[in-house]
Design a protein around this nucleic acid. Structure first.
Lengths: 204, 204
DNA sequence: GTCTATAACCGGATAGAC
DNA sequence: GTCTATCCGGTTATAGAC
């Protein structure tokens, strides 16, 4: 086995491991040792690939941020219909959340506990707000939906999608103390629920 | 100044300081030194009053949990109207969140990063789910609101209230990059927005 | 009860061999 | 590029004087 050739693979393994650990525990709670174990390598190697814990963290955080905003932006079509936007966005985003349930909590907590990062990562925080507003306002003008403040609508949607994942463990305890399978069904139903909920609420 | 008499006051000051620091930074990010500074006392004194960092943390966390569930439970009246429930709950809860904007993020993050706590604090996690379900189902039967799964309704409400606070700093950046005052207005408008939003969506 | 000084520990980072 | 061994700073926790 040629050791030189392992580089790209090792790096990928490290990033995967770091992602897993950081997303679950946050910067402060994560341990370099745990990341090394998870990646099946040595602690010193982490520093060889990424100079410090912070730098390794930055890669993960940056990526998580960019990915999140991409999903939203991709669903926005300035000249499209709000209802269509909601359908594709909710569908896409909830599918992603099913696979990565802890990313929202990770992002928000890191921002809240270290607000400076909002400056350091501002290039990655890009949401097409003008496009969204334009879409909503046009739909309102054309009487396709009822009047609503675009910002509130966006917050409503994000909250309805994201909250059950942020609060998943607590909700599981609260609703399904004994049968832990239940929350899975509930989250699965969410797509349909949210979409039809908005269709009713936005009727002109 | 009688040193003996200071005890209750010192304890209160410590708890206040710990609350401030833990809620903002979490268990892992908080420093006993910072709590001591904030309380205007010495680090060693923290250990005199509360044996360890963990124990001090537990007080704060327990309290935050209990307080949160209390607000919700207090608004539930089994024989009442869902719309009335929403009005009082949203009104109360948003007022509390305005004063304690970081508590939800604190609770969810601590649970997500240390799921075992869900067991250790299970006595404090008490939500009157049966009462809520009963209320919703009765309202549906009486055609006061349209059909909806009680669990989804509760998640919807909580999400709409809590999310803008969890994501506040990011939303501020995204919506009001330049004029940071804007988010304040938006949060202020939320009460009315959420209430009227549900009134429409729940029409029979 | 409150302080200063210090012990004990943990975890990120580096040195150096292979 | 990968490992073992070690350093070193920071942080919790304790001892002991007042």
């Amino acid at each position: 086995m040629d050791k030189q050739k392992n580089k790209p693979d090792t790096e990928r393994q490290i990033l995967e491991a770091a992602r897993k650990v950081f997303i679950r525990k946050g910067l402060d709670g994560a341990r370099m040792q745990e990341i090394a174990d998870e990646a099946g390598i040595n602690k010193a190697l982490l520093h060889y690939y990424f100079r410090s814990k912070e730098r390794l963290f930055d890669h993960i955080f940056e990526n998580a941020l960019a990915g999140t905003f991409d999903v939203i932006n991709e669903s926005i079509h300035e000249e499209g219909e709000v209802v269509a936007f909601i359908e594709t966005f909710v569908d896409n985003y909830l599918s992603i959340l099913q696979r990565n349930p802890f990313i929202p909590n990770f992002i928000f907590n890191e921002i809240n506990s270290h607000p400076e990062r909002i400056g350091r990562f501002s290039e990655k925080i890009r949401l097409n707000v003008p496009g969204f507003k334009h879409m909503v306002e046009k739909n309102i003008a054309q009487k396709k939906i009822c009047a609503i403040t675009p910002e509130h609508l966006l917050i409503d949607m994000l909250g309805m999608c994201v909250f059950p994942f942020i609060g998943r463990l607590l909700l599981e305890k609260v609703f399904f103390d004994s049968h832990p399978a239940g929350i899975g069904n509930l989250l699965f139903e969410r797509k349909q629920h949210i979409i039809s909920f908005f269709k009713i609420a936005l009727q002109p």
